[in-house]
Computed example of a mutant assay.
Amino acid sequence: MGNFIHVVLSCLPLSIESIFWDGDSLLLSSGGWYFRTESAWRVSREGEMQFACWDEDAGDLINGLAGLSVVGVDWVIGGQPIDPSMKLSDGRKLDVFCSTSIDPWVMSLPDGSIYVGNS
């Protein structure tokens, strides 16, 4: 995971054209990339949580990210390459919290790189 951040940064921005959330799996994608997770996630702005996966209207709210772009990426806790945090073009962040190694997050990038988290 050492070069994950560097490789993703070289591919930015990544437009979010499609979002799928069924209460278990979250999938963000566009023509050349995707991010999939079955872990808990939240969307925040300036340190204040706006909504999260367990909210009743999470499906409607997460669909509101369609049309934005991922413009930055880091770890939720700096220096701990476990939980990815994606900065969005409207200033919000999507943080993912890996819960098990059985269902890791997966990110496929336009350059052909594929990263599997928490594995």
Rank of each mutant, 00 (worst) to 15 (best):
S29M: 02
H6W: 04
F51C: 03
W54H: 12
N3I: 12
W41L: 06
R92V: 00
G79H: 07
N118Q: 04
D95F: 01
I19C: 11
M86K: 04
G67I: 13
V8W: 11
I77Y: 09
V43D: 03
L61D: 13
E56K: 08
L68V: 07
I82A: 08
D95N: 13
L27N: 06
E17G: 15
P81T: 02
G78N: 10
V43K: 09
G23P: 10
G23T: 10
L65W: 04
D95Q: 12
A66F: 03
D90A: 05
K93S: 11
E46R: 15
E46M: 10
T37P: 13
C98S: 12
D22V: 08
L28P: 03
G117D: 02
V116E: 15
T37N: 12
K87T: 11
K87V: 04
E17A: 14
V70L: 15
M107W: 00
F20T: 09
L88S: 07
G72W: 11
E38D: 12
C11I: 07
L14E: 10
L12M: 10
L14R: 11
G117A: 04
L27H: 04
S25M: 14
F4C: 07
S99G: 15
D90H: 06
S15E: 14
C11A: 14
C53W: 13
K93L: 09
L94D: 01
C53Y: 11
G47Q: 07
D95G: 05
I62E: 09
S89I: 05
W75F: 10
A66W: 00
G72I: 07
H6S: 14
M86G: 01
Y34N: 13
S85W: 01
L12C: 09
Y115N: 01
R42N: 12
S29E: 11
N118C: 10
E46F: 06
Y34A: 06
A40D: 13
R45G: 00
